[in-house]
């Protein structure tokens, strides 16, 4: 957890505020995990049923933990991708289109090459990752070469991706029914499906890139102060393009997880991931103007979002309240993480 404020650009690194900021996401997550069982306890209490807090909780159980983990996996991959971009102080909104295109191309290639991981169809996995990488590269290239703001380029590329996926599928769904591929979901080690371990591995790789490689440190350099980075002789354009490409690859990984989870690739595979991933990154404590945060923050953020989604249904609150609560959380997180003394104006 020492990596939480890696490369932070605040001069007062150990002030109380910074300590709170560093641990707030984890604190929120822990509180939520302990909060939902209270509602369950209350409900059973009113009904006059015996209920020992936490022990009898349906929410606070290993089975439910694995459900939350499964629900979180695709979102985690996508949020990790966008974390790199947000650390650089840019934004990538192309995830929905990139996920749909990668998912659909993966499914087409997978079926065309025999439809089972035991044969040549495994090639579909690297191909999908390359497709994601290409989409990301185009984002970064246009952003840097034509000096178009990243949110505009990526939003537009997202629409292009969704449209392209629709053209490819003609609105149809493609079922991926290979037992071996679906074992991502159906086979469990220690109560958790394989896809959760794959996601942990990907998180480890992302953490390694972020903290143990030059490119990872360069992301922080660009986000922490671009002028300074340029003055130090850093090729910022190259760093940005590499960042967007890396994000695209993680989006494609998210697409694979999404297909693994429901066994269907379609244009709608990417739906809703924009809101979930950006929310997760911000709630996890990565600052929108760059330089602060990291993939471990994102893990906590993704878990917060999914614990809320799951917990709301478990305690029987109406669905529309979930979006509202998440919205309030996003604003709270941004307000908390904004150091108003160092920012002169907001546009």
């Amino acid at each position: 957890m020492t990596e939480f404020v890696t490369g932070g650009n605040s001069p007062h690194i150990n002030t109380l505020r910074n300590i709170i900021l560093k641990w707030a996401p984890l604190f929120v997550l822990a509180s939520l995990v302990l909060l939902f069982p209270i509602f369950e306890w209350l409900e059973d209490f009113w009904r006059g049923k015996d209920h020992f807090y936490l022990i009898d909780s349906r929410f606070f159980s290993i089975r439910n933990a694995s459900r939350i983990a499964v629900a979180a996996t695709p979102g985690l991959m996508i949020a990790i991708g966008v974390t790199f971009i947000i650390i650089m102080g840019s934004i990538d909104l192309s995830m929905e289109g990139t996920v749909s295109v990668s998912a659909v191309i993966f499914a087409f290639v997978f079926i065309a090459l025999g439809g089972t991981l035991a044969g040549w169809a495994w090639l579909a996995i690297p191909i999908a990752l390359v497709v994601g990488g290409i989409m990301g590269f185009i984002n970064g290239f246009i952003h840097v070469m034509f000096r178009v703001p990243s949110f505009m380029v990526s939003l537009a590329m997202g629409f292009v991706g969704t449209g392209f996926a629709l053209v490819l599928t003609g609105g149809d769904r493609i079922r991926v029914e290979d037992e071996l591929f679906r074992s991502l979901l159906t086979v469990r080690w220690l109560n958790f499906p394989i896809m959760c371990y794959v996601a942990m591995l990907a998180l480890l790789v992302a953490w390694f890139i972020q903290s143990r490689t030059t490119i990872g440190r360069n992301f922080y350099a660009v986000g922490g102060g671009e002028e300074l980075a340029i003055a130090s002789g850093l090729n910022v354009s190259r760093v940005r393009i590499m960042g967007f490409t890396l994000a695209g690859i993680f989006f494609a990984l998210g697409a694979l997880m999404a297909v693994g989870r429901i066994g269907i690739a379609e244009t709608a595979t990417g739906n809703n991931f924009m809101f979930i991933s950006i929310t997760a990154v911000v709630v996890g404590g990565t600052a929108l103007w760059g330089g602060i945060g990291g993939v471990l923050n994102t893990l906590v953020g993704v878990l917060i979002v999914n614990v809320i989604n799951n917990g709301m249904v478990v305690i029987g609150l109406p669905n529309w309240l979930q979006d509202g609560v998440l919205g309030v959380l996003v604003i709270t997180a941004v307000v908390l993480s904004t150091n108003r003394k160092t920012i002169s104006f907001v546009k």
Binding site: R58, F59, S61, R63, N64, R67, V70, A71, A258, R261, I262, I264, E266, A268, T269, N271, N272, N309, N310, M312, V313, V314, I315, G316, P318, N319, W320
Partner: peptide, 25 residues
């Protein structure tokens, strides 16, 4: 037991159903 909107969406339905399974098993 419960009725929740899943917005005509496969992934959303998947998550809502997971919640239902936890709550009602």
């Amino acid at each position: 037991l419960d009725a929740q909107p899943a917005d005509w969406d496969t992934q959303k339905a998947n998550q809502v159903m997971q919640g239902f399974i936890t709550r009602y098993g």
